[in-house]
Amino acid sequence: MEIRNRRVLITGGSSGIGLALAQVLGSKGAHVAISGRQSDRLNTAIASLSAAGVAARAITADVATQSGRDATVAGALEALGGVDILVNNAGGVRAGRLENTADAEILAMIEVDLVAPILLTRALLPSLRESGDSAVVNVASGIALIGMPFYTTYAAVKAGLAHFGEALRRELAGEGIHVMTAYPGATETPMMRTSRAGAELGFVREPALAVADAICAGLQENAFEVIRGGEAREQMITLNRNDPAALDRRFAGMKAALEDAVRDHSAL
């Protein structure tokens, strides 16, 4: 896919991977709109993009609500005149034991990580069809591929998002709308600030720009998926498929340390 002059909507674009992707795609000539819940953070993001030579539009809306999704769609169509690339990037996480996770926290993850991408994609399909060469990018997580203890709901919704994308790609095959799923690993973003899990527990964080560059390259190549984490992640994926009990034992050995490191990890 050619990036130049594409009209791009990125949800959760005020920071982290979303903001980095706005910078990368904008630098390649895309017309970008970013959405987020907080106008002050969006304004700061727009200013940082402008300083990097990227003109972008901001849409203040909460995609976890129907009114917010309606505002996001309407704002994108008004700002861009249509959408050629939809990036479902907005996400939320609450780690910890399932039994200690509040109903509201579970439902928030379901709404923002799974329901919002499905309904936004459905709402924007007419505009994506008009383009004739468009794309939907769903930003899942490496945890969608390897379920980690203390991330039960997050793993469920991100795996659901990944399979939504896979099924939709096949549903839309030959219709001019490509669907790609990205699986970032631990990334240096505001979402990770409350997590104390480090490299000793397998959380080797990479810069958001590295993830954004990889997603952009995947779009240009019409890739089906972008998996971060390198050879170590590939080995874990293979082990999880061929000998899941071995991975169970590995997690058991770090269980207490991992629980302590992520018990305060919350970004909702």
Rank of each mutant, 00 (worst) to 15 (best):
R4S: 14
N5Y: 11
R6E: 00
L9H: 06
I10F: 10
S15P: 02
I17Y: 08
Q23M: 11
H31Q: 13
S39C: 04
A51S: 15
A52D: 12
A52H: 09
A55R: 15
A64E: 01
T65A: 02
T72Q: 00
A74Q: 13
A74H: 10
V87E: 01
A90M: 09
A95Y: 15
L98S: 05
A102H: 13
D103G: 00
E105V: 04
L107W: 09
L114R: 03
I118T: 13
L119R: 14
L120T: 02
T121E: 06
R122L: 10
S127T: 05
A135W: 05
A144R: 04
L145N: 02
G147D: 11
T153V: 15
K158N: 07
A162I: 05
A162F: 09
L168V: 10
L168E: 05
L168Q: 08
R169Y: 07
R170G: 10
R170L: 15
L172F: 12
E175R: 15
G176M: 05
I177F: 11
H178S: 12
G185S: 08
G198L: 09
L209I: 14
A210I: 00
N222K: 14
A223T: 07
R228A: 15
R233F: 14
Q235D: 13
M236P: 00
I237N: 00
L239E: 13
N240Q: 13
N240I: 08
N240V: 02
A246K: 15
R250F: 14
G253I: 05
A256D: 15
L258H: 11
L258Y: 14
L268E: 09
